[in-house]
Design a binder for these strands. Structure first.
Lengths: 195, 195
DNA sequence: GTCTATACAGAGATAGAC
DNA sequence: GTCTATCTCTGTATAGAC
């Protein structure tokens, strides 16, 4: 049998990551084989190893790319003046950005345990950096006197868990638009932290 | 080589479930082999099939048992009078019950996708039943005029996500006791839904 | 850069001895 | 009820042809 094609390195790399992300999110990292990924891309299993040293590195690449993108996007997000405006910006940004990347978000908190210690620490560090962004807003609001929080750490974890939870039930075209959901969650968050 | 021992059927069944839960929670369902479970119990892999028809049934049994226990425990929980007291009871119950069963909780929302459609539907139904308990409290509070919610469905999902999130960071012996965490979360929930 | 072919380990599950 | 032994399939990863 003849080989099917020639060189496609510029397109194959991104396609491998895209299919891997889709399959990992759907079935779980451990349940997906390199053969499955290769079949989805349309290459042989062996060919994947031209683009990644191993399966874990493929997962790490997906998680790292996602977290880097999240932090970069938040850095560029318009935030307004004052802790209250910044908190509203955070709430709306988190819901919107995560809903637009449901698979990557799902992976980032479900498949962390499949990373080795070094890779795990990198992703955890980025996550911590993101959480610190929110905590800084909450602390600033407390200093300004517009928020009243029993504990800024717990409030940070509570708000992020609540916002990320939207991904588990939201469906585009459902009862509520994303903008409406953003507004409702902002209302709940605003009340929960207000003085 | 001689066999190690005789009959242990009354003790082996529960031990298999206990070790499976521990291993599934730690490494993920797909990453754990029947041989690993058998080794942890101290029997041979083939012996597991005297207690479960297959690996998925073992997972389903764990999830089903957990959800049944959760619903039964909530049914027996003292709740007090009025929506506000009932909501506080729910918040504290959810945090306490879930923290005491971290492995089972983790499995119940991480490994659902490893169930076949019928088993999946059973667990989803139980989860839905539990969510409806909270939503009923929120609706009652709205009728009583003590809560002000833009949307009872979203508030339900937001509160459950926020409360369940405690399991991801709480460590016994850490900065805050479980009771303190309960109180702080109740404070945030109370403010978020209050009129 | 991709292919075929394959090495090697480990998976889930079953059969039959004891 | 548990064991050993084994079937069959699938896993990750590599070697070497083209």
């Amino acid at each position: 049998m003849a080989r099917k094609t020639g060189s496609h390195s510029e397109i194959t790399g991104p396609r491998i990551r895209a299919e891997a992300q889709r399959l990992f999110a759907r079935h779980g990292f451990a349940a997906v084989s390199m053969r499955q990924i290769a079949a989805a891309v349309g290459v042989q299993a062996g060919a994947l190893y031209l683009y990644t040293p191993d399966k874990e590195a493929l997962l790490f690449d997906l998680l790292k790319t996602h977290m880097d993108g999240l932090l970069a996007a938040w850095a560029e997000e318009p935030k307004g003046e004052g802790a209250r405006a910044r908190l509203e910006a955070f709430v709306r940004f988190h819901i919107r950005y995560n809903l637009e990347r449901a698979e990557a978000v799902f992976l980032s908190y479900m498949e962390l345990r499949n990373l080795g210690p070094e890779n795990f620490a990198v992703i955890e560090g980025l996550r911590k950096t993101y959480e610190t962004e929110l905590e800084a807003i909450l602390k600033a609001g407390q200093a300004e006197g517009v928020f009243d929080l029993p504990d800024s750490k717990l409030a940070t974890m509570a708000i992020i868990a609540m916002l990320t939870g939207v991904n588990t039930w939201f469906r585009a075209g459902g009862r509520l638009s994303r903008e409406t959901v953003e507004a409702i969650y902002w209302d709940m968050v605003r009340k929960a932290v207000s003085a």
